[in-house]
Design a protein around this nucleic acid. Sequence first.
RNA 1: GAUUCCGUAGCUCAGCAGGUAGAGCAUUACACUUUUAAUGUAAGGGUCCUGGGUUCGAAUCCCAGCGGGAUCACCA
Length: 578
Amino acid sequence: MQILSEQEIQRRQKRQQLIEMGIEPYPAEAFPVNVSAKDILKNYTRNKTEYKDISIAGRLMSIRISGAASFAELQDESGRIQLYIARDEICPTEDKTLYNVVFKKLIDIGDFVGVKGYVFTTQTGEITIHVTSLKLLAKSLKPLPIVKQQKDTQGNIKTYDAVTDAEFKYRQRYADLVVTPDAKQVFIKRTKIINAMRNFFNSHGYLEVETPILQPIPGGASARPFVTHHNALDIPLYLRIANELYLKRLIVGGFDGVYEFAKDFRNEGMDRNHNPEFTVLEIYVAYKDYFWMMDFTERLLEHVALEVLGDTKFVVGEHTIEIKRPFPRISIYEAIRLHTGIDISLMNEEELRETCQKLGVKVEATMGKGKLIDAIFGEKCEHYYIQPTFIIDYPVEMSPLCKRHRRNPQLTERFELFINGKEIANAYSELNDPIDQRERFEEQMRLMERGDDEAMYIDYDFLRALEYGMPPTAGMGIGIDRLTMLLTNQPSIQDVLFFPQMRPEKTIQAASHAEYLALGIREELIPLLQKIGFLTIESLREASPNKILNDLGIVRKKLKLENLRLPTKEEIESWLKK
RNA sequence: GAUUCCGUAGCUCAGCAGGUAGAGCAUUACACUUUUAAUGUAAGGGUCCUGGGUUCGAAUCCCAGCGGGAUCACCA
């Protein structure tokens, strides 16, 4: 049994009352809609004749009753518009039930209604729908948070009582979306970002593809995977941590440009930058190198910013960022030298470890050369790159899937794009020498044996694919969640995911009346027991009979039920024995 | 995983040198035919996150747990 608040009980009673009056609170038939709130607000003043016979549906978000005429606000997907409801308009005959009872008493904030009527402007100058008929489309049983907004004389919107409880917003996004227009805008932009990218890729003739999410070997990145099990095959399967190796197989197969917006899964810590599942765009283009990909990435981001924001400049936190081609390019060694004064380019693992210690960068025994360099860069350099900057030419140890640098075999042809101090994109000239690739995998195996639980597994099928020959290829990945955070100025990944992962809620299921009765509890005592907190049989069993008796006495007095016969201690003990 | 802050009505929040639980909106009732977050009058609504402890007495102090946020660690 659900535990209901006073308002929830009232709404259930209203629902029942509607049914008894012959009004279906959840009608099956479609309601024809021929206009949106936004359309009316935008175009009515210029084109009044078009809005003489309109039909619109949405949620009631405020109701102001004043006698025989009332105002309400209807919210549809596009926004809110005011309704004017006059009793004698919606009830032209003697029977005023629809207005006096259904509208005034039985309809609540949050209910879906459909209205027909015509648009006019009130004396206070607000574009309003004069309602001539009103129909309940769906009853809402749970009260929404009440968020109010006021426009000041400059047209700025002031919000009162906005939902601030992060837990409420993330767990009950459906309710947050109803009452927080800004939240909705973030998600609309997210989709626009993806659409803009997709259009950009398609206009280049690249093919959108789908590759396995359930993988026998979790490859293409360094991360701890989620493991599941396939019953029929009786094998473990992993939720993908990346799709890189599959997309490259497709390049082997003769597609010259493939991309995928992929959900990846990593079984690691969660914070405002990390959710266990997240979205990554990866794209691979044959016969290109990382220089081409840098240029391509610049153009892509410029395109996305213009499509989504209409501008290449935007504000993130305290910074204004500008997507301005070309972005500066700086090698990782140079970046480290610049920000620490130390040249690490010729150091071995031991020297790097000492350098880390000197710089106060935390290290672990399992870290190899690649991770050590990454640690220094992450701690000492990353946050300086606010404006878009390519960090290039990473050491080979950090990049097991990346082609060696054409002039220096200790380096790779790799870039990462940093914006606002965070990595936004990662790209390579892809390693296509199967012998080198095999050796790099083997190096990863050695790291794994040292205890690096994020080192890559060897994917022999991928090696086999490379052995058939893969053309020179440039590949690039962008974290869509991070990019969305950037372009919508949201500080937390949870704000750009509809349903961020949360610890499961503990729901208390209250015992049913039958369960109380089964213990021999008199029916009249059940509400009292619930009132004093014994909502489950289990909680009752754990309590002492004396406490139950005491509390019942208190609540009886409080509810002024002096005529109610309290149970004896023996009676209570008899319940607890059953 | 560590540190730290928070958890009071449907929502936003007060309340803490321990002494009967508060406000605004929302809800209910009555009045009102053009209102602009907030008409007037009245009423109802709470396991003060949970469990222990200290105390004559705990929303308030102490301990533990649960949930969430922030910082850090790992990573994208």
